[in-house]
């Protein structure tokens, strides 16, 4: 029973991250900086929705409501995504930095889960590896290129990086029953993930003219995992569930 609770916590936070960030990133559709990038970014946003669907489907098999119900009918305090994923898009530099910081963590998380003792999750982790390889290739390429390109690109990325790091550290907020996850071999834990993530982020940023702030001086922005969100999440959820609220019987 304890194991199931811990497992659900993990699945919900992963699925909610993917759903909320997938929705945010899809808001760039039609507005991207160039046609090909618009296509790529929108397509990756769709991948994220696909990942959330795969995870909500596992939750449904564990007795939770249907994926659509879970996605469209909960209030913001029932969502377990980190606050990073719900922040508005602002400028493309911020979206790129968020994409880089989040997807680096997500790729490493799924890498750790490939050998999970919970086989359905291990299967999903193995299936999405191509998509995550692409997402990180895309993010790393942009960061490495814009991170050395012009005064404007470097200073804009740096400003976004400084702003985003405390939110990104909120990805690794631990859930109450996390020790059960680690003990039962389901997941290596947020601390392990965080240290791998820091090394990977350092590796990419060291190839640019950007600078990482001192990790020790950063105060992570937490709360999302326990349903304490910023004012930005509820409007996103309202928009996402607009059709369902107008006509609950609509088929679409």
């Amino acid at each position: 029973m304890m194991r199931d609770l811990a497992l659900k916590e993990l699945l919900y936070k992963m699925a909610d991250d993917q759903l909320v960030l997938g929705h945010r990133n899809s808001e760039w559709t039609g507005l991207g900086p160039l046609l090909e990038e618009d296509i790529a970014f929108s397509s990756m946003a769709q991948d994220k929705l696909g990942h959330s669907l795969a995870l909500y489907t596992i939750l449904h098999q564990l007795g939770e409501p249907e994926p659509d119900k879970v996605a469209f009918t909960r209030n913001n305090n029932q969502f377990h995504n980190c606050i990073l994923t719900e922040l508005p898009n602002a400028e493309y530099d911020f979206s790129l930095i968020r994409h880089f910081l989040f997807d680096t963590a997500e790729a490493l998380r799924f890498e750790l889960l490939k050998n999970s003792s919970f086989e359905p999750l291990a299967q999903v982790a193995r299936k999405v590896r191509g998509e995550l390889r692409y997402h990180t290739l895309h993010a790393n390429t942009w960061i490495k290129q814009l991170g050395v390109a012009t005064q404007e690109s470097i200073s804009r990325l740096q400003r976004s990086l400084d702003f985003t790091i405390p939110y990104a550290l909120g990805i690794f907020e631990e859930s109450p029953n996390e020790p059960d996850l680690i003990q039962s071999g389901i997941f290596a834990g947020e601390q392990e993930l965080k240290s791998q993530w820091q090394m990977k982020v350092e590796l990419i940023i060291s190839q640019t003219n950007l600078h990482l702030p001192d990790w020790k001086l950063q105060a992570p922005i937490m709360g999302g995992r326990s349903g304490k969100h910023s004012e930005h999440l509820q409007p996103l959820l309202d928009e996402m569930s607009e059709v369902l609220k107008i006509d609950p019987t609509a088929e679409w």
């Binding site: 090909e36 990756m44 692409y134 290739l137 942009w142 290129q145």
Partner: peptide, 20 residues
């Protein structure tokens, strides 16, 4: 074709433009 600033970025954008 894809538009891109260089060969590496062209590879990244081509992947999603043509094989998504």
């Amino acid at each position: 074709i894809v538009h891109a600033s260089n060969l590496e970025l062209a590879f990244v954008l081509a992947k999603e433009t043509f094989t998504r």
